[in-house]
Design a protein around this nucleic acid. Structure first.
Length: 223
DNA sequence: GTTGTGACCCATA
DNA sequence: CTATGGGCCACAA
């Protein structure tokens, strides 16, 4: 397994720098990243290049992120071969499908929830992945709904009805406005150990927040 | 290489 | 409650 080299440009007594190194710790252990730490104050060229803009995480000449660890950006940079479990080297859609397959009958998850677990997808991409499924797939696509608790509308129209019918056949209840109550039917996520083994992000907080049983799409959050 | 195609989500107003 | 605009990107042809 080849290691992946990254460079952190930093300076001493820098709070953000220490914070980024700490955030990188589990990535080094889990994915075998090799970090090169460069103190920009020890090299006038680097000091001129970065000024106050540290820390910077870089891969070769490419900047991955500045100031805070952007885990999404880092994930994109990682060699997919490094991801463990049966999903080693799998494409994003296959990784999404693998998570969706674990939603039990009678439960639902949101696009954003799946995306947050997958780690590098967006909610929208989860929707794209569902749309790309061939007929007769073993992926229980009907169990993925939007963040408002509704079955999403789509161009065709018939698919929407079919999704609701399948969910109701599994015992999922829709209220008069066509909404699912996440506190009753919301999926809390797969076995955390399975997620970790597959190299996914952790599950959103189980149980959820009042009024929203699942975590929103965490990707968009900026620190 | 390029382009077209999609089942989203959130913050506002 | 609804409407709208911006942010998004993998995949197949």
């Amino acid at each position: 397994m080849k290691e992946q080299r990254f460079t952190v440009y930093l300076r001493r007594h820098c709070h953000l720098c220490e914070q980024m190194l700490q955030a990188l710790q589990p990535w080094c252990q889990g994915y075998g990243l090799a970090l090169e730490l460069l103190d920009v104050d020890e090299d006038p060229v680097l000091a001129a290049r970065f000024g106050e803009r540290v820390p910077v995480l870089a891969q070769g000449d490419d900047t991955v992120c500045e100031f805070y660890l952007d885990e999404t950006a880092l994930t994109r940079r990682l060699d997919v071969e490094r991801i463990g479990g049966e999903l080693r080297g799998a494409g994003t859609y296959d990784r999404i499908y693998a998570i969706v397959r674990r939603i039990p009958a009678g439960k639902v998850a949101t696009y954003g929830q799946i995306a947050a677990m997958e780690g590098r997808a967006t909610a929208r991409m989860v929707g794209y992945a569902m749309a790309a499924l061939p007929g007769g797939s073993d992926v229980p696509w009907q169990r993925v709904i939007n963040a408002r608790g509704e079955v999403s509308e789509r161009a065709g129209g018939g698919g929407t009805r079919r999704q609701r019918d399948r969910l109701e056949a599994e015992g999922v209840y829709f209220d008069a406005r066509g909404h699912v109550d996440f506190s009753r039917a919301g999926w809390e996520g797969p076995d955390p150990a399975w997620l970790v083994h597959q190299g996914f992000q952790g599950a959103p907080r189980p149980g959820g927040v009042a009024g929203r049983a699942v975590a929103p799409d965490l990707r968009r959050r900026r620190l």
